[in-house]
Each structure stands twice: as C-alpha cells, then as structure tokens.
Design a protein around this nucleic acid. Structure first.
Length: 920
RNA sequence: GGGUCGUUAGCUCAGUUGGUUAGAGCGCCACGUUGACAUCGUGGAGGUCACAAGUUCGAGUCUUGUACGACCCA
C-alpha cells in the first residue's frame, strides 16, 4: 500500500546532532583516507593544507581557507579521483618560542635561565599538550582531510627532509655563510628574512645634522637622517659625484659631533642628490645600503648597537660611544643624542617625514639592521626554475593577476637568510672543529656528527636554527616521505591545487614551487588558488588584536557547520574578499542558515511524499510516461550539472601536465558553483517541480505516482550530490533517507552526477512546462495587482496559437492549481472588460475578474509596456537599417535581430489593438 | 618611488572571448500562514554599469586619461 510513511525527520534541522553523527561515521569507514595503491588506477587529486601554526586557534581565515580546500577535495572524491587532502601543522619557530617565553616571563624568567636543552624540552612539552588543537577544530567544520597522514614540520620524518634539503643545497653550492647587514629583531633576538621584516608606513622625523669640516671649522656639511642615534657609528659622509654643491668637499674630513671621530666625505652614486640635503651619513653596520657603500669604499664597520638594541661599543667601535650614552636603549639613545646634538649646535632642523619602517612580523618590534654572520641560500637558480614552470604553463595562479606579482618577485629575488638565533626549530646541520691545530672545514652532514672527521677531536654544532619556512617550503613532498622513495611520494607527488591567501605568496607558495622544481624537478601543484581575506564591514581585516574577529566555532554552534560553509562559498567570487559583520552574526550567516533550513524542509517534505518503498530506476521508465514537468526538471538537473562542472573545472590540465591558453583561467568559481546548485534545488526543484507535482504525489497509488516518485527522487538525489561538497552534513543526512540509497553507502563517496543529455538543452516536451510557468506567473501578477484574495479562485483564459495550445492543453490542471485559477484555453481573444497580458510566443492571458477590472489601470499598464517595447523596437529597427551593421555583424546575429524585430512589431500591434478595444 | 587591482541596485558581489530588455544574495515595499518551509511563499520597487575621450555597425566588456579606493613591492 502506498499511504505516506511517517516522516522520520525532525521538523527543524539539528546541525549539532547531524554533525556528531556523520563525521565519526565518515572517518570510521575511511572515507577520507587515500590509498597509494588505488592511485595507480585512478587519477590522484592532492591538496596539501597550508599548515597552521601548531599553537594556532581557529579563526575565520582558517575557516575560509579550509572550506575551500574541502569543497574541492570532496568534489574530486565524488568525481572518482583518489583524493588526498593532507593535513598537518607547522612548528612555527619564532611564534611558538615567543608563546613559551611569555609564559616564562610571567614567572620572571627568561629562556636563558633554563638553558637551551630544557627550554626546547619545555616548548616540545607545551606543543604536545596544547598544540594541534586547531586540527580538531577543522574537523568541526567538516574538513575531510586524511587524518591518518597528519604531518608536523618538526617531526623526525620531516626533520630528515629538512636536513636533506640543507645538505643537498650545500652540495649544489647554494648554501653559504655570509657576513652582512640583515634584519634583526631585538625583542626576539634573531635575524629575519626580507619577507619577515614587514613595512609599516609611519610618519617619522627627518633630522638634519651639521658635521663640521676638520680642517676648516667655518665650513660644514649637513646630512639628513631618520635615525640620528646611529651617528656614533658613522664612518663617512657620502655625496653624489654629480652633485656640484659638494664637489669641493669630496676627500676632506668632517668631525662627528659628540664623539669627535674624524670621517671622510666620499663620492658614491648611491646618494640621491634630491633627497634631504643630498648628503648622507654612512653607518655600514646599521644600514643595509650603507653596508654596500662601506664595502665599496673599504670602510670600517663599527657596531654601536648590540643584539638587544642597547647602544654601546660592540665591535670596532672603541672611542665612539661616550660613557653617558653607553647602556641606553636605542630609543632612549635617540632622545639623548638629539639633545646633545642640539647643545653642540649640530642639529639644524627636524622635519616631519613619511617613510616605511620595517617591523618584526611576529612581535611588531621595529627591526634593527645588524651586521652579522648568517646562513643564506643563493636563490637565483631556484627562482629561474620557478619562473620556467609558470611561463611554460605547468603552473597557473588564480586569479591570474597574481602571476605578474609572482614573476616580479622571482625576477628580483634576493638571497634568503635562513638562520635564526632562536632555539625552537631545526638546528643548522653544520659542525665545527675548534681544535686550532686542525684545518677541518665546517662539516655539513645529514647525520649528527660527534667527532671531527680530521682530528677526531670534539666538535660543536652550529648554534642557529633554520627559518621555519625552510621546513614549510618542503611541505608538498616532505609530508609524503621525501627523500625516501615511498609509495606515497610516487603516488601523490606532484599534487594538484594549492589553496591559500595572497599574503604568503612569497613566504611560502613561491618557495614551494622553487623547492619542488629543484629537488624533484616538478612543480608541486599545477594550480595556485588565492582566495580573499575575511574582513569586517569597515573592510578591516579580521584579527584578534583589532577585536573584530568571528570565532568559526561560535558560528558552528549557532547555525551549524554547513551554514558557515555555505555562507563563505556562496559569497566567494574568485579572489574576492569576504565581508562579515562580527556584530551581527544572524545577518552575516543568513545565506547559509536560510539555505540549510530551506534544504531541510525540501528534503523533509519530499522524502515524506516519496516514502520508503523501493523505487524503479529512472532508466526503466519509458520516455512517453514522463510528463512535461518531469522532462523539465530532468533537463534542469542536466543544466545544473553542466553549470557546476563549468564553474569548478577543469580539475587538471587536459593533457595531464600543461595548461592550454583556453583552460588556464577556467574553473574554481566557487560562488558560481554554489549559485548553480542553489538555483536548481530551490528555484527549480522546490519552487516549481515540487509544487507542480503535489497533485500526483497526493494520489494514493497508480503508475503515474510511481513515475513521479522516481523522477522526484532522482532529481533530489542529483541535487544532494551537487551540494555535498559545500554542505556535507545536511546532504548526507537527507541522502541516507532516500529509498534507493544502498545500506552502508555514503553520499560523501557517491558518484558525482553526469548530465543525461550531454548538451543540457531543453527538450521539446519540457517546453510545455515553460509555457505553463509563464502562465502561472502572469496570473499571479494579475491577482496581485488587483489584490485578489490569495485564497480565492479566479477564471483565466489562455489564448494561444494552435501548436502551443496543444502543448498547453495538458498543463491546464497544473496551471490552475499553481495559480488558483479555473483555466480555459481558446484560439481567439474574446475581448471585453478583462485584465490582459501578453506572454511569450503570442500567447495571451485573459483574466475577466468580473466587476473588478480597472480599465484605466489596464490602459496605463499597456501603454507603459507599449512605450517601452516601441522604443526598443525603434532602436532595433535603426540598427537593422544601418547598412554597416547588416554587412559587418555576423549573419546569424543579423538574422536573429530581424526575427526579434518581427516579433516585437507583432507584439506592439497586439498591444495597440488592445488599447483600442479598451477605448484609448 | 615602482607595480597590480578595483569602482555595476541601499549593502556585498556575479556578468567567460564586445552582440536580446545588465543578474544573485541580503536589505526595502505590498500581500499572505493554500495539507514542507514566516530562517518561508507570492508579487513588486530599485542601476545614465565612477567620470571623460577614443576604437567599433555595436562597449558594463577593448584603449587612453582623470578622480577615488584597496593591496603588493622598495
């Protein structure tokens, strides 16, 4: 018997219980686990996660980033790829060390009180206990990563990769120790790479200092500087050799104020005659540019500021720092020195000056340029390879405007300072023999060295650790076991898509491409997808410090993970920032919340009507048994599938390795994908098909009801498959209720739909339903205009040319029930006092509305419509009368325009006739 | 200082190689609980596509300039 089943679904969607039901089932059944062996017979599709800092707490940026990855990986998993999303965390050298140092500071201790070994142990312990929590938080938003492969940049396995990379680069002659001015964070006590020293625009001061000539105290030269405290370390004044103002002074000496040191005036083209006074003081130990000048002129390099940012005579600086200044912090020293300069009459003036000051990207302290010994990687050869893969089409970046940024940076690449003077990280694998009698060079080794290879005496390891990014840049293959030739490495390298934010294009993305190309001779991925930033309504980036953040877990609790995911994906234009209001979560997440509620209600109703009896497969139903509505929804599903595919794909270059120009910019349009799927399930399946179907479904039994059940279930099944990557929980819960879902199967690994008809074009039968929709909308419009009681039934006549009339004949009941109208068909318009509308293809709607029709209103409406169309017709006629248009535009277009003109003309005529009958 | 991008409905954004009457979500207005859904339904209002010039039969789309805004690099 076919009485409707008891509805098993609760009336409101319970996100919490659904999420806690399905996530464990997915993981228990290994739905997310990739298999290297299977990858031999299926296309692998690999995404490596941008590893969050091991101590990080989930924020909206992670939410966005990981949702995108999850959508892509779930899509490819359904599409039959061997999908691997590889998760993990980054040990985050400086950041993590800072956290633990802060804890120590609260106890009044420093890391030096503990000593290196115990401190590192303490950090490791801290990471063990509190680290990696973010990975659990990723599970809460539905991330389908392969947790069995969770990696960590500081694990023994990945540490092995790091050593291998360092040693190999050394063997390749690309690692060297350099003595130069680098960026130094006095607070963190370490050097930083160029990328880690971020520029901040600041309004500072430009100090003009007067240095008196040694041999002629009546003469002086004025230099301009933003950092007067470095004058103690000045070794020269440089002027441009072309600058006529100073020609006579070149070669003479000036006396530094305060410490009385004599320094020469030199000529160097580095000096810009137009900046400041045209004369600059040269402090080689405390400015990278001055360092270059100093090297060119073989100047001494006195160091007057130490590693903690304290002014004192550090090196080659005897007699330069007066006792009164020694021991002052660099900021205090600036104040004191300016005062002294003023007292000596050496301070000419102070101007406001807008410039960019570098700050530590971890603690925001102003970076101090510092002369020191550091390990560097010579990047030019690596960068060239990374440029080749982009130019050769093995790599693309979306949005493509970032490709220019990538190229620009790589073309101007500078050597990478990879050593850090902190303790938390991979120690530089270099050992020194301190035996003065032994001539052993530093030993660079893959394994720990315990004795000198020459004299067998004791050795000591380099104190420095490697930049965190030196492990991150190996991530796409270190996580797969490199340098060992593991099955995973063979199966899953190179990967496919890298999803991240543009901020780390240089830090991480470009470097991964370089390392992949260098060590494995292949770009680690063929696509870089750079998504936008999550911002608040003032377009300010969400951040903890600004207090404008949204906790994704709050959103999950309030509306569910799917609502969070949907909101972000639906709003995610390519490379576009996502705006959310931290003060109004209801409004911000309304799109996702509303969509989930709607989907749940669609499913609840639909499933209750479909029931639980087995369904015959769609393929077993003879086409002539399908109604126009059935044909229509099946066509719409085809179209939705094609639209989703077009928005998402292609997943990889068609030839497997190189993007063609036609492919290169395509796909990864997540918002278009969301819109195509949404339109299908909501605007087509629910709004029209389900409504049109109600009479058939309420029938108690019969063949037609079976057809309706089958088509309905098929259409919904298709919708759920299309939606699963975006809203995995709610779709899984609904899909499990469909009668034809096999026991033990998961939507999460069901097949991605394929369009039945390849072209997605509407079939002729479906066209009848389009006419029916037109008629329904027209009747509703008339009803609304005349304020007809929504419950009341009206008479409506459709006047249609014979062939369309024949199509409409079968739709009369459907139109009637959807528009609450007693619908009749006619070949001729009877005229009379009625509301009349022109539909498409010459179909007319006549609604008599006895006694209610307002003739003036009808006339007005017709007139407005006629005027609009007439204006457009005239423009079109003008175009068609233009000989150039007719001769130059594509013939097919001209033909189409002619046909349109004819249609519009007939329509205008019809309206004029109507107006006349209305007495205008 | 160098570079990149953006400016389309009240807000946030789509609009693929130039070619019907420029779309969506949210918001707004009117009506409404007809056997899934008021986190909803139905109907509707709202845009000289920043400005100016140019190319073209034809420009939201291509070129140049201007204004404003954002980001990246030095």
């Amino acid at each position: 018997m076919t009485a409707p089943e008891t509805n098993p679904l609760p009336t409101t969607y319970d996100a919490g219980s659904t999420e806690s039901t399905w996530y464990p089932r997915w993981t228990e059944h290994g739905v997310f686990t990739a298999d290297a062996e299977r990858a031999a017979t299926r296309e692998p599709f690999v995404i490596v996660i941008p590893p969050p800092n091991v101590t990080a707490v989930l924020h909206m940026g992670h939410g966005l980033n990981n949702t995108v990855q999850d959508v892509l990986i779930r899509w490819r998993r359904m599409a039959g790829d061997e999908a691997l999303w590889l998760p993990g965390t980054d040990h985050a050298g400086i950041a993590t060390q800072n956290v633990v140092e802060k804890q120590l500071a609260a106890q009044g201790k420093t890391r030096f009180d503990l000593g290196r070994g115990p401190f590192v142990e303490k950090v490791a312990e801290f990471v063990d206990h509190t680290g990696g929590e973010i990975l659990n938080q990723l599970k809460a938003i539905g991330s389908s990563a392969d947790w069995s492969r969770t990696a960590y940049t500081f694990s023994p396995a990945l540490s092995k990769s790091v050593r291998e990379a360092f040693v190999r680069l050394h063997e390749d002659g690309l690692v060297y120790k350099g003595h130069r001015v680098i960026h130094w964070c006095p607070r963190c006590g370490t050097s930083l790479s160029d990328e880690e020293a971020e520029f901040t625009d600041t309004t500072g001061k430009l100090y003009h200092l007067k240095y008196t000539l040694a041999d002629d105290p009546t003469q002086s030269i004025t230099v301009a500087t933003t950092r007067p405290e470095t004058m103690l370390g000045d070794v020269a004044v440089a002027v441009n050799p072309e600058d006529e103002r100073y020609l006579a002074m070149i070669g003479q000496e000036v006396v530094l104020p305060i410490n009385g040191v004599r320094i020469p005036i030199i000529a160097d083209t580095y000096t810009d005659a137009a900046f400041g006074t045209g004369a600059v003081k040269i402090t080689p130990a405390h400015d990278a540019n001055d360092f270059e000048v100093g090297k060119r002129h073989q100047l001494t390099m006195p160091v007057v500021i130490d590693a903690e940012g304290i002014v004192r005579e550090v090196e080659d600086a005897a007699g330069r720092v007066p006792a009164t200044l020694s021991g002052l912090d660099r900021a205090e020293a600036r104040t004191a020195i300016v005062k002294l300069l003023e007292a000596e009459g050496a301070l000419v003036k102070i101007e406001p000056h807008a410039h960019a000051v570098r700050h530590c990207y971890r603690c925001d302290t102003v970076v101090e340029p510092r002369l020191s010994d550091q390990w560097f990687v010579r990047m030019r050869p690596l960068a060239d390879k990374a440029l080749d893969v982009l130019r050769g089409g093995q790599l693309r970046i979306l949005p493509d405007r970032w490709e220019a940024v990538y190229v620009n940076w790589l073309e101007g690449i500078r050597d990478w300072n990879i050593s850090r003077q902190i303790w938390w990280g991979h120690r530089v694998p270099v050992w020194y023999c301190d035996n003065p009698a032994c001539s052993q060079e530093p030993i660079v080794s893959r394994t720990d060295v315990t004795a000198c290879t020459s004299c067998h005496g004791p050795v000591r390891q380099d104190e420095d650790v490697l930049d965190t990014w030196f492990s991150s840049w190996l991530w796409p293959f270190s996580t797969l076991g490199w340098p060992d030739a593991t099955p995973d490495l063979k199966a899953f390298y190179p990967g496919d898509v890298l999803v991240t934010a543009p901020e780390i294009l240089f830090f991480w993305v470009s470097r991964m491409v370089m390392s992949g190309c260098w060590f494995l001779d292949q770009t680690p991925f063929h696509t870089v997808y750079l998504h936008g930033t999550v911002r608040d309504m003032q377009h300010k980036k969400m951040s903890k410090s600004l207090g404008n953040g949204i906790d994704p877990l709050d959103v999950v609790k309030l509306y569910g993970a799917d609502a969070l995911r949907w909101t972000m994906v639906a709003g995610l234009g390519l490379g576009v920032d996502v705006m959310l209001d931290p003060n109004d979560l209801d409004k911000s997440f309304a799109p996702g919340r509303n969509f989930c509620t709607k989907l749940w209600n669609i499913g609840r109703f639909l499933l209750s009507r479909v029931g639980t009896e087995p369904l015959q497969p769609l393929s077993s139903i003879a086409p002539e048994r399908l109604t126009a509505a059935d044909q229509w929804i099946l066509d719409r599903l085809d179209q939705a599938v094609l639209d989703c595919d077009a928005a998402l794909g292609p997943p990889r270059p068609a030839n497997g390795h190189t993007w063609t120009d036609a492919e290169r910019g395509r796909g990864l349009r997540l918002s278009e994908y969301a819109e195509a799927a949404r339109r299908f399930v909501w605007n087509e399946l629910a709004d029209w098909y389900l409504e049109a179907l109600k009479p058939r479904l309420y029938a108690t039994e019969g063949e037609d009801r079976e057809v309706a059940r089958t088509v309905l279930a098929h259409a919904f099944d298709g919708a759920l498959r299309l939606l699963q990557p975006m809203v995995p929980f709610i779709t899984e819960a609904l899909w499990q209720q469909l009668p034809n879902t096999p026991a033990g199967a998961f939507l999460a690994q069901a097949a991605w739909p394929v369009a039945r008809r390849g072209d997605g074009a509407a079939s002729a039968e479906a066209q009848a339903f389009e006419y029916a929709r037109d008629a329904v909308q027209a009747i509703r419009s008339v009803r609304s205009e005349y304020n007809v009681n929504p419950g009341a039934w009206v008479d409506a006549m459709l006047v249609a040319p014979a062939p369309i009339g024949a199509l409409l004949d079968a739709q009369v009941a459907t139109i009637g029930s959807l528009a609450r109208a007693r619908v009749t068909l006619a070949a001729e318009n009877p005229g009379g006092a009625s509301a009349q509308l022109l539909l498409r293809d010459g179909v007319e709607l006549v609604v008599p509305l006895a006694g209610m029709v307002d003739l003036e209103k009808e006339k007005q409406r017709l007139q407005v419509e006629l005027d609009q169309l007439d204006a457009q017709l005239q423009a079109l006629d003008g175009r068609l009368a233009n000989e150039k248009f007719v001769s130059k535009a594509p013939p097919a277009l001209v033909e189409a325009e002619r046909a349109k003109a004819g249609e519009w003309r007939a329509r205008c005529e019809l309206m004029r006739t109507k107006l006349r009958t209305l007495g205008a």
